[in-house]
Nucleic acid binder design. Structure first.
Lengths: 248, 248
DNA sequence: GAAATAGTGTCTTTAAGACAGTATGTG
DNA sequence: CACATACTGTCTTAAAGACACTATTTC
């Protein structure tokens, strides 16, 4: 039997198969320096009325990353944002309808970009503040709150997925340049510090933060500075070249 | 429409679905202190005769972790080893037959346990030495070599999966107690150092390694020491309690 | 006692935290 | 000029690398 004969013989319908979906944890830092995520209200059973991560089924002719990018564009009208695979959730009954394995991704975006696209999308989208009940990289579920600090009920296992996304970016922040993904093109060192603080959920030492970031060689002054700030204007910086290589 | 009516109405066959598989990167440190992985010779097309990671399809009634544990038991006769999800590979044509998404896992095991089970499994299994052509956590594919240092051809995208597994454990070694998973119950500090060196692919400073490990509080002297070693016998240590919590 | 590695003590180097003090905008 | 925050320089502290020195087994 040669290879083409084998391919013809192979019968993929022999196995009863799970469905494969992609969910996207779209994270940002709001104007109050809180970590937040985009949620979609479920209009259908199960968990009708609860809030869920933007998601959808993977098409037979698209990669996982392409599916995640498509969902991000369909649900939040965002393109070209930082997007990485997070973890694949495959508990047998995580979706009560049928077996659904979901490849969770996380995305990071500057809040101003999110707010701009937000105006154009449906009312069933919300940017929920995250309440992380653990410190460091302990991990666990997170709570989601609306603008009046009322809890939002999450569908399926999405509280765990959100929690894992927070844990992942907390860990990644220490060795990878991802803070910049949550900021506009030009930013001040203190804005970057506030982003780090929002992600890590704790205050950072200003002096050593400056030293470490400047020593990293990842950013460069633009030459410009902020104006109309009521005090000495901080210098603006921008992130240097990206050298990241993704998987998938 | 209430929830049970909806569930009855939901038709999962509407979508053409990918197959979902699990592959396991089973890693160990051999007697020459080289990082190595278990490979299976493919007996069927495609890539017949090439070497592949142990893998198989996910059953409709088992979780991803359960599938990985089953494969580990079926192919290498190993139970109760450290096993974690690695990454999900979903490129459209990664398998030429049909769309197969694979949830890659990695496992760590003491070489003596592997060698003991190795005797009972088929000749189509090999423990291949890994040749990692990059340093640190740069990432990329790895090469696999047999006992005579001859390259083994890898099937599909398995060289990339192996590379990602190496990258992952290199990163994880710095903050998680995974070195112990590659050692027997009792071990000396220098044995642990050699494991770290094999994983990281570089020499470590003996003094600071001792200090760091002892200060971590993760290990405890057993009270015993090695004997018949031709020099001052090193104290034996054992890993304290596990407090790890998995996902999935 | 020689050989070989285990284990200890101390000096140096490096990075982070603390903090004082200067710089430069807005009002 | 007052105020607020940006930015700089120095001291302290903690951890890692280097290295000298002692300890304990086998042969």
């Amino acid at each position: 039997m040669n290879e083409s004969e084998f391919s013809a013989h192979y019968d993929p319908t022999k196995f009863e198969r799970p469905s494969v979906a992609v969910d996207v944890v779209l994270l940002s830092i709001d104007l109050t320096d809180s970590l937040c995520a985009v949620l979609v209200r479920r209009k259908e059973h199960p968990d009708k009325g609860a809030w869920a991560l933007p998601g959808g089924f993977v098409r037979i002719d698209e990669s996982l990353d392409a599916a995640a990018a498509r969902i991000l564009n369909e649900k939040a009208k965002l393109r070209r944002v930082f997007l990485e695979q997070l973890y694949t959730f495959g508990a047998v009954h995580r979706d009560p309808r049928t077996r659904v394995i979901t490849v969770a991704h996380y995305a990071l975006v500057d809040f101003r970009r999110l707010a701009a696209s937000y105006a154009h999308v449906s009312d069933d989208l919300v940017v929920a503040r995250l309440d992380v009940p653990w410190s460091g990289e302990a991990g666990g579920a997170v709570r989601t709150l609306d603008e009046r600090a009322k809890p939002l009920r999450l569908a399926f296992d999405h509280a765990r997925i959100l929690g894992l996304a927070v844990k992942r970016i907390r860990g990644k922040l220490n060795y990878a340049p991802i803070g910049f993904e949550l900021l506009p093109e030009a930013f001040t060192l203190f804005e970057l510090q506030r982003v780090h603080q929002a992600v890590l959920g704790r205050k950072l030492n200003k002096d050593s933060f400056r030293r470490k970031i400047l020593a990293s060689g990842l950013i460069e002054p633009t030459g410009a500075a902020q104006t109309n700030v009521g005090h000495r204007p901080p210098a603006l910086y921008h992130f240097l070249k990206e050298q990241g290589a993704n998987h998938g």
